[in-house]
């Protein structure tokens, strides 16, 4: 096939008339757009809701059920509370950053917004998360002696076993999340350079 570059525009325009329509049912698109926005908000809020529910449960337990007497327990609760509250704040900031990625912006700015989002995720999932998970575990451990005094051994052992298994699952999940987000970040940085390149 012998084709000159100058003919491509003509060919492209002829092809446009023959391009199949996106075949989009407008009411269906509108409905999909609305439900996508809802499900996106739900998905982003889910993590925050779970963390907030945990915060409420441990607070209620602290004030209404356990009535701790050891200073160590109060310190432990304080550390857990602050750790969870910080984690929730980070998730909210991350959600706001995710919503600031504007699909109607220029390709370069859209990519830069996504780069900022993933850089922030990198920080959240990196040092911040390690520090938060570690302090949460320390806080829980500090409460151990008093919990041990107030609960039967099997229940105490069960709680701590559940805690260790939960922490392990959390760490594995975070690591896999970090790996995926780091790949996305690398792709975005390469894309940003590609857009800027002359």
């Amino acid at each position: 096939m012998n084709m000159q570059i100058d003919n491509l525009k003509e060919l492209w325009n002829k092809a446009k008339a023959e391009v199949p329509s996106a075949d989009v049912d407008v009411p269906a698109i509108v409905s999909k757009a609305k439900s996508k926005r809802r499900s996106s908000i739900v998905a982003h809020s889910l993590n925050i809701t779970i963390l907030a529910a945990t915060l409420v449960v441990i607070t209620l337990y602290y004030f209404l059920v356990m009535r701790y007497r050891f200073l160590l327990s109060h310190v432990g609760f304080g550390i857990m509370f602050v750790s969870l509250a910080l984690r929730i704040a980070l998730e909210v900031i991350s959600m706001i950053r995710a919503y600031s990625i504007d699909m109607t912006d220029t390709a370069l700015r859209n990519t830069e917004q996504a780069v900022l989002f993933f850089k922030q995720r990198k920080r959240i999932h990196g040092l911040y998360t390690i520090a938060i998970v570690a302090s949460y575990m320390i806080g829980f451990a500090l409460m151990g002696p008093e919990i041990y005094n107030n609960l039967p051994l099997y229940l105490f052992a069960g709680i701590y076993l559940f805690f260790v298994v939960g922490a392990y699952i959390l760490i594995v999940k975070i690591r896999s999340g970090i790996r995926k987000e780091m790949n996305d970040l690398e792709d975005l940085l390469a894309l940003r350079d590609e857009i800027r390149k002359e």
Partner: peptide, 23 residues
């Protein structure tokens, strides 16, 4: 790839609807 193109086109119009207020 017509199938992928159709999926992306639909995403384009979903984003269009969701961004229309900001035009």
């Amino acid at each position: 790839d017509r199938s992928k193109a159709k999926d992306i086109s639909q995403e384009v119009f979903v984003s269009t609807w969701n961004s229309l207020d900001r035009f």
